[in-house]
Nucleic acid binder design. Structure first.
Lengths: 395, 395
DNA sequence: GCCACTTATGCCGATGACCGAACAATGGAT
DNA sequence: ATCCATTGTTCGGTCATCGGCATAAGTGGC
């Protein structure tokens, strides 16, 4: 038996925030469970739980089924009272998902919106949408705990400010978190859209995968990186910018000034342009998808070709990063049969066997709301972080 | 004033292990310092320090200079009583560095040794060398706390076993830690040689850099990855295997069966072979270095060319990983003027400006002992890890 | 239906980690 | 010589946490 209250040995002692995280994760649902997992005394657990209940963070449900003894009281996050918003800003759309802190999507809304309208106009629109969704789901505005935002460009995550975003005119250094702080009084977390999609995909669809790459093939091509369960943003926060990696043996000119960039070879915009060159009607990536789905041979061949190009680059990244999972998402993932075939072919040909032996390459499992939900998860994980909760319970 | 003993608010409270880590880092040197940094009461700090002294982990030096009040007693790791060994196993050499837990190299020894002799023979040799170094520096064998080992092939870090290492016949799944546990009774940590070099370089030469890539250009080409201050090993532990990434527009056949691999284009072995093809006498990477240093035009051109190929691949990795520092090491780093010129040229041409704006690309600053010292640091960080120390102090 | 048994939670005194304040030590400043 | 600034130690008090016991609330056998 270990000596009591010994912070040196297998140290029990978990802060209220850590207890809440356990409850939130769904891994434990009763006080007795918590005591078993944390090894804290049952009395201590009750104390922690009482504090969380007193602060309205946890609810005591009805009794759970008995397993031969007194039935436990089930504990759960007080989802009614705590909501977050996940915002997905695209080049030409805006999607907002209202979620409770349990991760359930309560309502979502999408509409076309040009990011080029500038931060003031766009963010005011987001604010209105969030308020509308709160009303629609009959939640008090005061129940909003935080906001996650995904934007189509590089962001300095710590300050939440876009940095020289190529397709977001007027957004450079705009203080997005301050906007939401003044409107809702909550913290906003802003990240690149591919990052939040990677986070959402990992948390929702691949919870057991610790090293995940999310490849988004849309108009451009980007990559979100989850390493050891956390987002890897790199030194300047622009990690995952794979659109301009050189593809061997191809010389398609790219808007970046170089030739043979992955984006120029396999990006939706470039595929569409090539199809136009063949006399077909394709303005964007979605038209490419439509043509493939209708069985157009040139389009199918081209997407497969694009898959090989993506796979060529991905093969190098797999060798370098050694992920356990690669997820293909973005507009062109709608035709993932063709795309994945090319990707797998190239990756398995060129990557090291040890790196590919357990590697999974799969299409995205999250749907249209991927980015909004991912942003919401970012917000939830902030709101439920032990530091946040401890501050709340202590204050 | 925050209420005392509140584990929720700005929670002071640091375990003995954390206190030792502070002392070991050199950031603090007196009890008063520790109290200021950790915000614990001075009495508590004394208690922690007393425990560490009682267990022989910390020494109380002579007084430090007064600054107008009572002079502080300086604290330092008890380096006399705690040593580690760092072992660098190469294809044809074995280097052992004996270090104290403060990180000072006490003695080092190198000699030629073929890894192909098999684990039994090689590890017995290592054991003899470690014992000789202990005797040479007049340390008791019992002062050895742990052993770090870098090997030239993939390793499952958690078990310390090589996994299908191409140039280490007979080592597949050999339990290296068990060997040392039975001989010295200490834990051995085994990792890929490039990983320990990256770790050593980061800790020694670039302590402020959190995202570092260490590129080793020797016979082959490999990469060690430090992300957020920790080694990134990937899902299977084979991350950083960049030798067989495809280089655009080049088709040199590679031993792996593919063509255009970085290693086939720019590896020391391949460069030597090409020089032989030009009628020059070059058996390995070191001969290439010799030729470059003697001003041979073909060799200089070829190394520069190799630099560009490395840079081409590195440009992609910089976009993907967004490091703040890239270090070039390995045998060919001896001619880093020529190599770096090519690397920088390619990286700055092809990487995203945001990723390169603060990027440093520099030659390795650690010398011949890089891998052995890196392995030693791995061992030190294990021996001084809070978990280890807490167990010691508690037990 | 009653009772033994099992499991969950609440209550309470005991323990000890940590704190803060007072005190001792030690050298510089005046 | 005296005061001051700073460091470290001692000691009593507080509070978080523990373990044990009482209570709650089911199941299953008889």
């Amino acid at each position: 038996m270990s000596s009591p209250s010994d912070r040196n040995s297998a140290a029990a002692s978990h802060s209220p925030g850590e207890v809440l995280a356990l409850i939130g994760s769904g891994a434990v649902t009763t006080r007795a469970d918590i005591a078993r997992v944390t090894k804290m005394a049952r009395s201590t657990v009750s104390q922690r739980v009482d504090a969380l209940i007193a602060h309205g963070l946890v609810d005591e449900d009805a009794d759970g089924g008995s397993t031969g003894g007194r039935p436990p009281r089930r504990l759960a996050l007080r989802t009614r009272e705590h909501a977050v918003a996940g915002v997905d800003l695209g080049a030409s759309h805006c999607r907002v998902a209202l979620m409770d802190i349990g991760g359930t999507t309560l309502a979502a809304h999408e509409e076309p919106l040009s990011i080029g309208d500038g931060p003031d106009s766009v963010l005011r629109h987001v604010e209105r949408t969030v308020r509308a969704l709160l009303k629609e789901t009959q939640r008090e505005p005061g129940t909003l705990r935080s906001i996650g935002v995904g934007v189509p460009g590089p962001v300095e995550f710590s300050t939440g400010r876009p940095v020289d975003p190529p397709i977001m005119p007027g957004w450079h250094q705009y203080p997005i978190p301050e906007f939401f702080a003044s409107r809702f009084g909550v913290r906003a977390l802003v990240d690149n859209d591919v990052n939040v999609m990677a986070l959402g995909e990992q948390r929702r669809a691949f919870p057991d995968c610790r090293y995940l790459l999310y490849i988004k093939v849309g108009t451009g091509i980007g990559c979100g990186i989850v390493a050891d369960g956390r987002l890897h943003r790199g030194a300047q926060g622009c990690a995952g910018d794979i659109g301009h990696i050189r593809v061997a043996d191809l010389d398609d000119p790219c808007r970046c000034g170089n030739a043979g960039c992955l984006e120029a070879v396999a990006g939706g915009a470039s595929l569409a342009a090539k199809l136009v060159g063949l006399g077909l009607d394709a303005a964007s990536g979605s038209d490419v998808v439509r043509l493939v789905q209708s069985g157009n041979r040139d389009a199918v061949r081209m997407v497969r070709e694009a898959g090989r190009a993506v796979g060529e680059v991905l093969a190098g990244l797999v060798n370098f990063f050694n992920p356990d999972t690669v997820v293909m998402g973005g507009a062109l993932a709608a035709v993932h049969d063709q795309l994945l075939a090319g990707v797998r072919e190239a990756v398995y040909r060129r990557s090291h066997p040890l790196a590919t032996q357990l590697l999974r390459i799969e299409p995205s499992r999250t749907g249209e709301n991927a980015a909004a939900v991912g942003a919401g998860i970012l917000a939830i994980e902030h709101a439920l972080s032990p530091e946040q909760v401890n501050r709340l319970v202590a204050g």
